[in-house]
Amino acid sequence: MPDPDAKKKGEAPLVKKGKAQTLSGKMAVAYATHRGSGEDQNAQLERFGQVMYGVLRKMTSDPDAATVTVQTLGQILEPPLTDKDLGAFLARLSERAKGGDHKNALLPVQEDGTLTAEASDGVVKDVLGGTAKSPDKNAAVSVSVRNATGTEDNTEKARVVLLNGGFTFRDAGTAGAAEASSEVVYADAADKENATEVAKTLGLSADAVSKGKTSANARVSVVLGQDYQPGS
């Protein structure tokens, strides 16, 4: 990996090729962030994951000591977690990494950063190792929406309507070809009423509701067809 601060071409690389190397902070950053000419971004992301794994293995497993490390670094300007919470979280991850129970996985996201319905199912099964379930029975019902109307902005219109209706929206992407009729599917019999309410919220007929297989990250799955009329 070249030294980003090198003033001339041809200077010695900052990170030399080879296995089982110990990297300084500057070397680790260069290794994790460098992307060679014509190199696929996934290769760079793989290196980033390797560096994070190495950092976690070097991190202390003691929550208090990890908190001191976070505070000493002082690199997080607007942290979503307190120093103490982040320290405790990193300490637990460190213990996992040292025990061989931590791994990195690349998520197959689209250009807009979202997962397709198929990819979501694969992530839940292969990465999370199970079935996605709502952590709270009183939590908002999650609804995945696949746009098969042939009109791109109908996804956003459906999202706004569902959020205003108190549902959690999951984008299941856009179908390759338009479909004439919409579908609202629920997998659990307990969600039949929720699916009916989703159909009503979207202005769809109750006949569009049926029991079947839903997306892994949603309790109700919707395919918007050409019969969907935003604002109805």
Rank of each mutant, 00 (worst) to 15 (best):
L202I: 06
V109K: 07
T33E: 15
L86W: 06
Q75M: 12
E179P: 00
D83Q: 09
Q41A: 12
A216H: 03
A117K: 10
G74F: 11
A140P: 13
A208D: 10
G99K: 13
H34T: 14
E118F: 10
E152Y: 09
V198P: 06
N217H: 01
L204D: 09
V143D: 13
K213D: 13
L81S: 08
P108T: 10
R219E: 15
Q226F: 01
R170S: 04
L81W: 11
T201S: 13
K133L: 13
S94C: 08
K7D: 04
L45C: 05
K103L: 08
T60V: 01
P2N: 13
G165I: 10
T60D: 05
A105S: 14
A208S: 15
S232A: 15
E11A: 13
S134D: 02
N138W: 02
G10L: 04
G100D: 13
D191G: 03
A91S: 13
G166L: 13
A65T: 13
M52A: 05
L204M: 11
L163S: 08
A180V: 12
R92H: 09
A66V: 05
T67N: 06
T67C: 08
T149H: 03
K137W: 07
G25Y: 04
K8A: 12
D171I: 08
D171F: 15
L204C: 12
A43N: 07
A28V: 02
G38W: 02
A218D: 02
G130T: 09
G25T: 05
V209E: 10
S142D: 03
D3E: 11
T116R: 01
R170Y: 02
A206D: 15
A32Q: 02
V141W: 03
T67R: 14
S61R: 00
D85K: 14
K103W: 03
